[in-house]
């Protein structure tokens, strides 16, 4: 390995950072896209119910609908603060 390769490897490769960021955001947006329109409102109402008992924010709750062949799974993830 030449000294140049060494510098090349230690320097952050911005293209690979771009790729990683894109993979994350694109996957997230695709997921959102395939979801029914009522999901954001559903999420909001669930948030309000939980808030009666625990103090959480918008970012602590995630509602997703996943299609597995002929059945759909409504997945609710709530992160409770400690």
């Amino acid at each position: 390995m030449s000294i140049f390769d060494y510098f090349k490897n230690t320097k952050k490769n911005t293209a690979s950072i771009a790729k990683e960021r894109l993979q994350v955001i694109v996957a997230h947006e695709r997921n959102k896209r395939n979801q029914p329109d009522y999901l954001p409102a559903l999420q909001q109402e669930i948030l309000e119910v939980i808030r009666k008992y625990v103090n959480i924010d918008q970012e602590h709750i995630d509602v997703q609908l996943e299609n597995n062949g002929d059945c759909s799974i409504l997945e609710l993830n709530v992160t409770l603060p400690d």
Binding site: T14, A15, A18, K19
Partner: peptide, 17 residues
């Protein structure tokens, strides 16, 4: 620029899309 690591390669773009 792709070879120097500062531009997404065509394989990357194709893989993402």
């Amino acid at each position: 620029r792709v070879e120097s690591g500062d531009m997404l390669g065509v394989d990357d773009v194709q893989e993402i899309l």
